[in-house]
Amino acid sequence: MKLVALFVLLVVAGCQSVPSWERGVLARSDMQLEGSPTEALLNSQLYDSKEASAGGLSAAGAGCGCN
């Protein structure tokens, strides 16, 4: 248990927020989790209606912090 807690602590410590003006690399299309934004939007629409819930899956704006 202690080992798991230590692992989580180490992984979380590696998280860092990137300032909005340094997100050029994150905004590249090959850095996206979803290959097609339109398909992702349609999938999310289907998921939301099937699950009767919305949001919480990803941030909008292709990772660049835009809008």
Partner: peptide, 9 residues
């Protein structure tokens, strides 16, 4: 940008 601490692009 840092001196204005901008929040988006």
């Amino acid at each position: 940008a840092a001196s204005y601490n901008i929040t988006g692009m």
